[in-house]
């Protein structure tokens, strides 16, 4: 028997293992919700609702996943999103030009990414401190722009709400016999495109592979001839860019700028990435996992609300609990792996 015929099954890598756990948990959880609550959970619209509400969170989480794979962290994303929403709404109200507003959104996001990335990678300052300051700056700037909520004009809102993709065959038949198609907002399309783009970048792009390399072991990445500083810088730039895009998507969804917009989004994004199997220490992670991480997180909140625990505190307590569970899971799984290797 020749050796070539023996097919050795490769063990799951850390990335795949953690991602598989998440996807399994998501499917089991959603299935249970279908069985127990029925109703809304039986309709595909439920999934689309979750997607519609959290398109910007998915985009931000993708950016954060890149940064975390590179071994860093960025907690300014939520604040930047909020700043982008506020400035875009105010800009649109002044000029009435949506294309320029979109460019502004991308510009603000890029500016944050560039400055924070430069401070972190070229000046060797701890990412947490820099992005914490960035978060404060963005939040402060948002209130400097306007303390009061700013709204888009109603006709623009209607127009934005009108742009929806309807999928009739995924819809359901209402009581009166009409078929109500599943609706998906344009933001979801953007989010899905971002997920695919980031997936391709991480899986096949040389820059993406470099992110894994510097996150896994900086010294060996350096020895391999990877420009560590530039790679880390790029991770923050991409993350900043994605938070800009996320701000624009957020604006399309809500249509109003408010100082408290996207509050706690950075924590939700970090939680999504962690649940999706991104390791905090860097080097391990997958954007598909992050996507399912967001879905898991938000499905849990939906379940919490549906099951009657609709006091305002339960949502963040369950988020915290989930986070705790997955962080411990990661720590245990990887601890066992490390022991096996020894």
């Amino acid at each position: 028997m020749s050796k070539a015929k023996l097919k050795v099954r490769e063990p799951l890598t850390d990335t795949q293992l953690l991602m598989t756990i998440t996807i399994c948990i998501f499917i089991v959880m959603y299935g249970l919700a279908m069985l127990i609550f029925g109703g809304g959970f039986l309709r595909t619209q439920q999934i689309f609702d979750i997607l519609n509400d959290n398109a910007s969170l998915i985009i931000v989480s993708c950016g954060l996943t890149i940064v975390m794979i590179g071994g860093g962290i960025d907690i300014s994303v939520g604040a930047v999103t909020s700043l982008v929403v506020m400035s875009c709404v105010m800009f649109y109200n002044r000029t009435g030009n949506m294309v320029l507003a979109a460019l502004l959104a991308i510009g603000i996001g890029l500016a944050f990414g560039l400055i924070q990335g430069a401070l972190i990678s070229f000046l060797d300052i701890q990412p947490f401190i820099v992005t914490l300051a960035g978060m404060f700056f963005a939040r402060g700037m948002t209130t400097i722009l306007s303390v009061n909520p700013q709204k888009l004009p109603t006709e623009t809102m209607d127009k934005l709400a009108g742009i929806k993709i309807e999928i009739p065959w995924l819809g359901y038949v209402a009581n009166n016999g009409n078929v109500i198609p599943a609706r998906m907002e344009i933001g979801v399309v953007v989010a899905l495109l971002v997920v695919i783009a980031v997936f391709v970048l991480l899986q096949f792009g040389s820059l993406g592979r470099n992110f894994y390399a510097i996150g896994g072991n900086q010294t060996s990445a350096l020895m391999l001839g990877i420009n560590v500083k530039k790679t880390r810088f790029m991770s923050y730039v991409i993350c900043g860019l994605l938070s800009g895009i996320s701000g624009f998507v957020f604006m399309m969804h809500t249509g109003a700028g408010n100082a408290t917009n996207a509050a706690g989004m950075e924590m939700n994004a970090i939680a999504s990435s962690i649940i999706g199997g991104t390791l905090l220490t860097g080097g391990v992670g997958n954007v598909i996992g992050t996507f399912f991480g967001t879905l898991t997180l938000k499905t849990i909140s939906k379940i919490v609300v549906t099951s009657g625990l609709n006091d305002p505190w339960w949502q963040s307590i369950t988020t915290g609990g989930m986070l705790c569970f997955f962080i411990l899971l990661q720590s245990i799984v990887l601890g066992r792996r490390a022991k096996k290797k020894k």
């Binding site: 706690g264 924590m267 970090i270 939680a271 006091d311 305002p312 505190w313 339960w314 949502q315 963040s316 307590i317 988020t319 915290g320 609990g321 986070l323 705790c324 962080i327």
Partner: peptide
């Protein structure tokens, strides 16, 4: 981060 996320909600609760 866990407590940061849910601490104020626990206080509320």
């Amino acid at each position: 981060l866990i407590l940061f996320t849910c601490g104020r909600s626990i206080a509320y609760w």
